[in-house]
Nucleic acid binder design. Structure first.
Lengths: 351, 351
DNA sequence: ATCACTGGTGGGAGCGCTCCCACAGTACCT
DNA sequence: AGGTACTGTGGGAGCGCTCCCACCAGTGAT
């Protein structure tokens, strides 16, 4: 039914002006109705809404973006190759939370992978062009230049897993310290006393915090902290094996292990088995992440669960307020926000 | 260093006009250089490029979109909940191909899930607003209204897995017919003669084609087609079990089974085992999809591989030409395009 | 010398919005 | 009666591009 105009333009989508003419009001008034301004009388609003419905009017996003200097879109940036994104349920959970929280909004979510250098290049261009109003950053390494680029471009951003205690970006984190504590307190409660800790890579802030929780839990219970019972892994299964081997040689009598991730716990379990230790009878084992591995391990692994989906929701919340705050020009200065969500210990047969 | 202007606008990004002034040329010339028009002298081009570099000019996408009536973005629409998207490697492979093919382009890819009704609603709005230049459609059900919506809105679209032989959208498919043939020919070559077929849901076009390949391969080899050896499954493991049970009761002497998917093959395998049949000694088994299941099955499953990543690339190719063709206004009419990519039989121990 | 062309270039018009200023109308005070 | 204030409204200006027409040299043919 669409009548084609003279030039190549297709479709003849109605414009604000046409809606205004139809409703017998001015352009500005229609704009106010569309944007939900309260300064419109009920009668006028009704007339405009009728015209919008009759004409099937849909705002032109490009025009709006140009005039208002915003895009109504935010990006979820994953500085990893796509493969890892799909492999780890972490991202899937995060995305679910983000999507849910966004569904009440007009905001559009873009998923951007920046694993390769080339993709990084494109991302930088993309951000420089201000094609999004804000950015969600997940799984960022300590030396990544991305956060700096974002602050330089003055693009609102929220990072999941702050890079340090002094993180300059608004951040959302789970309570790694509390998670570490609860794991150790649980083991102590089970009557274990020689509790080892396989940490994650210690340049990852969260791994430091978990270790701190481990230390404080022991100390507060009146146990001395034996540094020989702390051995760094690197979040891999192989790293877990190596660390466990080392720990076992240092103290064959240890009766519990708190691993900084489920994957490392899986590695530790192998070594313990080979050394003839029964789990949990001889050595109790606790992991971190409550991943699928934990559920399927033999015996099923006690693990610290992070509320990843909730973290996604929190990130959106913070980002949206940050974007809203920026709009009225006054950059409110230095009060960086930070959210920390509680973890939960999921007890299974391994402890 | 950015000096703030009088009003609230932030940042002072350079505009075309500023680049033009700096390079000592007109606005139009800069635009030509940016867009790679050949009608610019080398000297002028160099001057403009220098000015662009000095000023760090990045085109304003919104302005371009408004003026040129295009967005330089395409959407990958997944009419499934996110969960399935992550669960099935199909999507991951497809995304890899799409991303790779797009990386030479200025085009931006959006990932849109439309599993729930609410998400569908948003998607419709999104498309009506013409926020993308084209759409990639994957895993669409036969009765989905989305394709019609797209043609109505005159948005270029490419679908993976056409819904029927009369698919109205440009489509990319793997050679399901050839895949079915090759599976059966392989089994015949192994000396099997009573070959059963567990089909997928027959309202899925690809499942029909696989079954057609099965029939023709038998017929061309001089074997009669016994309809009692064809039993529909529904792509699930349970469906595979049911179909296998039925087939075995109809013909206890069958010596091979071609299942329309690896998952159904897994179901069939269970039933065969319980019935005391050895694989492949008594009954040879072939699946379809070459998924992780196939590799991990005991014994490893012979399966037909679809070139999913290549399909992703092909979809982008077709979509981009479709978008380009549309630009010069003349809608070239009725010659719908269609690409069919070859499959490959991966032989393992089950046959 | 005149008349086509042709490759290069400048800049007006306009894309469809938002923002904001101006102004009419009403209400409520002095 | 005149002021003041506030609600609701219309429409100009302008966001930063692309498109296209007009125009200016050259160049070669007449």
């Amino acid at each position: 039914m669409a009548s084609h105009g003279g030039r190549g333009r297709s479709g003849g989508r109605p414009t604000l002006e046409e809606v205004a003419a139809r409703a017998g009001v001015g352009r500005g008034t229609v704009s106010r109705v569309i944007n939900g301004s309260p300064r419109v009388s009920d009668a006028t609003r009704a007339a405009v809404e009728a015209a919008v419905a009759e004409l099937g009017y849909v705002p032109n996003t490009a025009a709006r973006a140009l005039a208002a200097n915003r895009t109504d879109a935010i990006a979820l940036v994953v500085p990893e190759p796509e493969t890892r994104f799909f492999a780890e349920p972490y991202f899937s959970d995060m995305l679910r939370g983000v999507g849910a929280e966004l569904s009440d909004t007009e905001m559009q979510l873009l998923l951007i992978f920046a694993g390769s250098d080339r993709e990084r290049q494109r991302l930088a261009q993309y951000l420089a062009a201000h094609r999004v109003d804000g950015v969600l950053l997940v799984s960022v390494h300590a030396d990544d230049p991305l956060p700096d680029l974002l602050s330089q471009l003055e693009i609102p951003a929220v990072i999941s897993g702050p890079r340090s205690a002094a993180e300059s970006l608004t951040s959302v984190d789970s309570d790694n310290y509390g998670g570490g504590r609860s794991a150790v307190e649980h083991l102590l409660g089970r009557g274990r006393s020689r509790i080892a800790h396989i940490t994650g890579r210690l340049d990852v802030y969260g791994a430091q915090r978990r270790a701190a929780g481990y230390r404080d839990a022991l100390r507060d219970a009146g146990h001395p902290v034996d540094e020989l019972l702390i051995e760094p892994g690197d979040f891999t299964e192989e790293g877990g094996r190596r660390a466990m081997t080392t720990l076992l040689s240092r103290d064959p009598g240890l009766d519990a292990v708190f691993a900084g991730s489920d994957v490392m716990a899986a590695g530790a379990r192998q070594v313990l088995r080979e050394a003839g230790r029964r789990i949990p009878d001889d050595v109790a084992l606790v992991g971190y992440d409550d991943s699928a591995i934990a559920r399927h391990m033999d015996p099923p692994l006690t693990s610290v669960r992070q509320p990843i989906e909730e973290m996604g929701r929190a990130m959106i919340d913070l980002l949206l307020t940050e974007i809203a705050d920026r709009r009225p020009a006054t950059s409110r200065g230095l009060d960086r926000r930070r959210a920390v969500l509680p973890t939960e210990l999921v007890v299974r047969a391994s402890s």
